[in-house]
Design a protein around this nucleic acid. Structure first.
Lengths: 106, 106
DNA sequence: CGTCGAGTTTGACACTCGTCGAATCCGATG
DNA sequence: CATCGGATTCGACGAGTGTCAAACTCGACG
């Protein structure tokens, strides 16, 4: 069992990704996109679930995109989004490893 | 396989916790505390690893405490911190479930 | 009981972030 | 090519955040 204290540069990278998840709107957006497994989701479908205006939703989608958590593709008049499973898995593993290490005896 | 779109109130709660992880200093603090499995860590041990001043580190520890990610206990002149594994595990499971759901076929 | 050291709280400041309205871009369709 | 609708970008404003210096709290120790 390795007791890894996370390097400073890794911390910066992970923190940026977690920051993308630190907003309720973004968390719900990601969840809604993830919930449609193979299907793709267009922005117009997402808008209905929020009170925020289109520019705000678009801003949040951009934050998620810049964080590498989702990808967007334009087809015809609509933009479709998908999640990047590996990105979520990486975060999950970091938290799980920390939880395990902390639980283990000295 | 349940395709869960996460309720709005859950999103608020999770977002608050992720916000606590959205700073490199806090991420390293948590990691350093988690790395000392059974042992407890006093603030004086943590301070050496950072350029930030004691008030700043103390502030970050409070954020992690308020988020329920760590607990602190004062003994004699020193305060010792421990992580709360279940809190980390909950976040890990959320991300893992989303990654799995997104990977699964429609 | 006075002092010292570990840690936290307070107050202030620069900076970032979420939000919206207005303007813009980009395909499609007439 | 003019127009329309979906989506994004721009500009601005109020709220929140990270940081530090200074002041404070709490045990311990002489």
């Amino acid at each position: 069992m390795v007791t890894e204290p996370v390097t400073e540069s890794d911390a910066v990278a992970f923190a940026q990704t977690f920051k993308a998840l630190s907003d309720p709107v973004r968390l719900r957006l990601l969840s809604m996109i993830a919930a449609r497994a193979g299907q793709e989701v267009c922005v117009c479908d997402l808008l209905d679930a929020f009170t925020q205006t289109p520019p705000t939703i678009s801003h949040h989608l951009k934050v998620l995109r810049d964080a590498g958590l989702i990808t967007g593709e334009r087809r015809a008049s609509w933009v479709y989004y998908r999640v990047v499973p590996s990105a979520l898995a990486a975060l999950s593993q970091l938290l799980d490893a920390s939880a395990m290490t902390a639980t283990a005896d000295a």
